[in-house]
Design a protein around this nucleic acid. Structure first.
Lengths: 138, 138
DNA sequence: TCAAAAATAAAAATAATTATCATTTTTGTT
DNA sequence: AACAAAAATGATAATTATTTTTATTTTTGA
């Protein structure tokens, strides 16, 4: 039975709604919009609970934060090497099959594939920085 | 020119010698055996320096620690879901080629593949725990 | 030789996460 | 409904990993 407490439910809802891979503090920020009195510890606790229950997963980005994910199937990640933001990407179908097979055959419980690049946001910021540098020189 | 300070050199040596993927505090522990006066901050600084220089890389394990790696080519990781320990594994040759191609074609700068399982050490510990539980019940 | 730059130790500061504890809410049983 | 036991929570303290700061030392290169 999926009989969660209202706050646990709220954390899960936020996870389902957000299309990104939020860190705990981002989830906290978001849940507070509907339940202002919720505490950060509760968010952590419920994310841990939901993880144990196999409902959300952890993703490691590139900044020292744990990030969370509700879509546990069939996708890999695109990670920004600057800000650590994580995006979903579908596996090429044949690759997924290959890795699933490899995993089974060798007794691994799961696998994770990530591709890295600098995200558009960070690229923009970096360009802006250079520009400002040029300007201040002259 | 690879003209590093003696401490920077020592950090790199340790990284090369250790066949695992140590966290900063493990590196610190190890370097202290030869340079007892080295400080933890210096280890962090030099790992960061060596990373920027492309000599060591970061690996994300499963515990909330950054781990470091000197072998930057041609291998993927086997990560323990319990303790976060990271082990190297060769890519199947054809998979490596496929991923390299995919990466180039789509403008990613790198990729990472990890397989997860519970390592032998942790399996042993967990068995031991269960056994002790049984005993204390009777 | 000597000034500027780089590297360092030690300690303080920061940031993310976890643990504690007193209180509140929920649950299942009578 | 009443109530005891279990679970969940907020607030805060504690912990852990990492980064920053500062005063000092070492290295570099002119």
């Amino acid at each position: 039975m999926t009989n969660f407490s209202s706050r646990r439910q709220a954390v899960l809802e936020v996870m389902k709604t957000m299309r990104c891979h939020p860190s705990a503090d981002r989830v906290y920020e978001e849940v507070r919009k509907t339940i202002p009195s919720i505490s950060l510890a509760t968010v952590y606790r419920n994310l841990a609970f939901l993880e144990k229950a196999g409902i959300v997963g952890r993703v490691v980005g590139c900044d020292n934060k744990e990030r969370y994910d509700v879509e546990l199937d069939n996708h890999c990640h695109v990670i920004c090497t600057e800000c650590g933001e994580v995006e979903d990407m579908d596996y090429p179908e044949d690759l997924k099959r290959y890795l699933d097979g490899y995993c089974d055959k060798n007794g691994f419980c799961k696998f994770g594939l990530s591709f890295y690049k600098i995200c558009d946001e960070c690229k923009r910021k970096s360009e802006l920085g250079k520009l400002q540098n040029e300007i201040s020189k002259n």
